[in-house]
Design a protein around this nucleic acid. Sequence first.
DNA 1: TCCGATAAACTCGTGGCCCGAGCATAAAGG
DNA 2: CCTTTATGCTCGGGCCACGAGTTTATCGGA
Lengths: 403, 403
Amino acid sequence: MASPAGRTPSGRPPSVRARDARWRGALAVLEEMRREPGVTRAGVAQRLGLTTGSATEITARLRELALLAETPAAASGRGRPTTVLHPHPEGPLVVAVDLRQEDWRLAVAALDGRPHVAEAATHGDREPGRVAAAIAAAVRRVHRRHGGRVRAVSVAVAATVGHGGVVQSAVLGWDAVDLAALLPDPRLPLFVGNDEALAAAAEARYGAAAGAGTALHVTIEVGVGGTLVVDGRPVTGATGAGGEFGHLPFGDPALRCPCGASGCWDLTVDGRAIARHLGEPPPPDPRSYAQAALAAAERDAAVRSAVGRAASAFGRGLAGLINAFDPGVVTLGGFAEPLRTAAAPEFGAALTGGLMRFRRPAPPPVVAAVLGGDGALHGAAAAGLDHVLTEEGLSAWAAERTG
Amino acid sequence: MASPAGRTPSGRPPSVRARDARWRGALAVLEEMRREPGVTRAGVAQRLGLTTGSATEITARLRELALLAETPAAASGRGRPTTVLHPHPEGPLVVAVDLRQEDWRLAVAALDGRPHVAEAATHGDREPGRVAAAIAAAVRRVHRRHGGRVRAVSVAVAATVGHGGVVQSAVLGWDAVDLAALLPDPRLPLFVGNDEALAAAAEARYGAAAGAGTALHVTIEVGVGGTLVVDGRPVTGATGAGGEFGHLPFGDPALRCPCGASGCWDLTVDGRAIARHLGEPPPPDPRSYAQAALAAAERDAAVRSAVGRAASAFGRGLAGLINAFDPGVVTLGGFAEPLRTAAAPEFGAALTGGLMRFRRPAPPPVVAAVLGGDGALHGAAAAGLDHVLTEEGLSAWAAERTG
DNA sequence: TCCGATAAACTCGTGGCCCGAGCATAAAGG
DNA sequence: CCTTTATGCTCGGGCCACGAGTTTATCGGA
């Protein structure tokens, strides 16, 4: 999940060995706790097929290691009352950062994966060094407060990412920014992911696409972003720069895209497209322009028509993606959901018309994302947790505590 | 891998339990043997970090269960000679079938995953019932010869697949054909996969993309097929109908596609596109037409130009896919490789021009697939083996032998 | 041809983790 | 208060892998 660790301290051999089987049961229990915060011990045991003896042993071990705490469950019928599993108050933590166009937020998540926002700020200018320094200071503060409990730093950023840093970002105006400076301790692993890819993963795990094996998340902000998520893991490519659906050439090849290519889908669906259809110059902020256009469309037929053309281009491209990937569910984030609602007939016609015939009887549901602006933060926390909740992660934690 | 089991006899509970950890070491050893046929016991032990004691124990257990055989290794230096690991001559087998437009082939693979073709035939007509019956008879013969050693039947078919059968196939002229009749024993698991998706998986595991985390395989036959392969598993979507890249709307929206949509990429790259550019009627067999066009292009400037336009359309679409998925390597199968070779300048220019600027300094290598016509068969065998080489698969095998 | 060096296989005691069976415990219901 | 019910706890046993020590098979040089 997210880009593979800028500087994970993984000097040890791969160790696919069975010694690591030590953590199998413990991991299964912790994953259940994560997947469904508030599960009872009895419930976990039943779902995993553990005997009560094993459950006792595993929970005891995990409590000993400060990975899990138990509180009495609210009585719910006859029988001896069971306990509810929680993250341990002294257990491992993950720092999740969401770095957006105007601001950033820093959250801390325990093993249940729920990010709690600890700091937030807007950045006046977007000078990479200053923004990174501000975030790094916030990370340091959290790190100082929690010490060795912080096990990973995971950053969602509105940019094309790769190799543990930002490769390029139109919305931030950044090029090739290394984010390693965010780490308060160079031994900590750093995960950097595209915000939309992480939001997609979050939707697939906790949100509108929960339970789907293959989910497609598509967002419109400035251009189109999104990611395919397979079994909870976003498909982010070899360098972590995947998910740039907006640069599939669904559009007019004569239109040049700032990315360097031409005919990009990006140009046909967002505020820039609406402005072009209206014969206006490219708006400085396509997002707010698009929002305003949706509002104006109710009164102004020309605007309504321009919005309809954008919705149609969006539906046509989305149909192509459904043809290509056969997702079980599609979630729409950002401006995508209001756009399809505002021009539902055009969107629907383009979507259906773009689907291969055999898909039309049972197309995947297209639903609104439910995590909204918190998706990326949830996804970043999940990416960090995916690292903590491994055999290696747990044995490192155990070694530090007992050693 | 491939579509999730038409009728796998998986009535048992998920069983994520640690009892299954019993097979971890054994599975790791068998996977090594599969990944690199001809490995030595000492080599496996070293790579997995096993002690010689564990290696002795595991190999002994696997020999006992007829999962593995050892032969003396050719002496290669000082020290006590080690042994080479092979599939056991009485070990489990997988039946792999490749069902193509004109013919089908049936192969048998042991745990090393190498398919050995046992039967093959062309189908005069393509009446689904007759073809299925002929294949079913061949499967029955193999099943009779090997008895309980056959653990799965895995079919690669030139069709859109889903839910354990064919959904639709233009090249075969089939609609909604259930392939469950191929099973000689209803308790056997059946895997049905698109041939190009399986070929992609095979390329990523054994072929030109071996070792790549994210690989993109693209083929031109009639239209464009292919699949993204992540960590050895093809991304086949929710119903197994993924990989239809040819139906991304990269082309002229005015062109209607037989699939029901319009502007499909399919129409711009294969023999139909070349014929259209030459003002000729759609060829009955676009594949042979395209082959002939490539040959004629050397002499005929008009044909050369038409081929160039197809190569350009192919390169442009491929660049879009690279933008969207960031593969570490791209493999070309079928007509795709000769097409780009025949019109390398046009292909190269379109590919580079279609890439986002930041990708251009280090684009993924685009290489020819090396498994050729055997890719789908390899992939189908791999899909079947993926089922055998699981904790469930091995414990079922062990239970049948000892019980 | 023998002998040391070398690499790898074999043996056996140990420990971790989980299972099963039986016992103990905490509520709800009559 | 006793029964029912659901669950937690205890303890012996099995399985798998680890580690250390021993044995075996080959190579290279004297």
